[in-house]
Amino acid sequence: MSIMQEDTQQDKPQFSASAMKQVEEIFSRYPDERRASALMPVLHLAQSEFGGWLSRPALDYVAEVVGVAPIRCYEVATFYTMYNLKPVGKYHVQVCTNIACWLCDSDNVVKVLEDKVQAKMGGTTQDNRFTLSEVECLGACINAPMMQVNDDYYENLTADRVAEIIDRLP
C-alpha cells in the first residue's frame, strides 16, 4: 500500500496568466497576513486548471503560490474529498447514496450508471470519459435521488433520466 498518490513523475505545472489573476482575486478576500486561508480556493482553482486532479507537483506548486509548507498543503488536499489525488475522467459522476437518496432507490441509480458506462463505482472508463464515485449527502435530499456531474446537480433521478443525462453529455 502506498501512502501517497503514485504519480510523482509529473512536471510541476504552472498557472496561466489569467489563472494567476484569479489567484490574486482570491488573495484579496482575506487580510494580507492571512494568506494561508487562500489555500482551499487556490486548490480548487488548480484542480480545474490542471485537468481535474492534483498531482503531487501540483500540490507543491500550490503550496509555493500560497506560501505554506508543502506538508500543510498535503494535509488539506487529503482531508477534503473534493480534491482528486488521482486522474479523473472528463465527467466525474458522483452519486449520493446516503440515507435520503438510498430511501429513494439510489441503488438503482448506481446500477444503471455502472451498466450504462461500463465501469464500477470508484473506477474510470477505459476511454477516460467517466469516473464514477459514490459520495455522501450532497444536500439535495428533497429531490432524491440525485447525482452530480462535474459541477452540475441532477435531481429527482429515475433510471430513464440517468441514461438520458449520460447520453446527452457532450
Binding site: 501512502i3 501517497m4 503531487r56 509548507a69 506538508i71 498535503y74 494535509e75 482531508f79
Partner: peptide, 20 residues
C-alpha cells in the same frame, strides 16, 4: 521545520510527512 503532518482523515489519518 514543517515536515511532519497528518494526512487523510478519520481512522485513515496517517501521521508523517506524506512523502514516503
Amino acid at each position: 521545520v514543517e515536515e511532519m503532518g497528518a494526512v487523510y482523515r478519520g481512522d485513515h489519518m496517517k501521521v508523517g510527512p506524506y512523502v514516503e
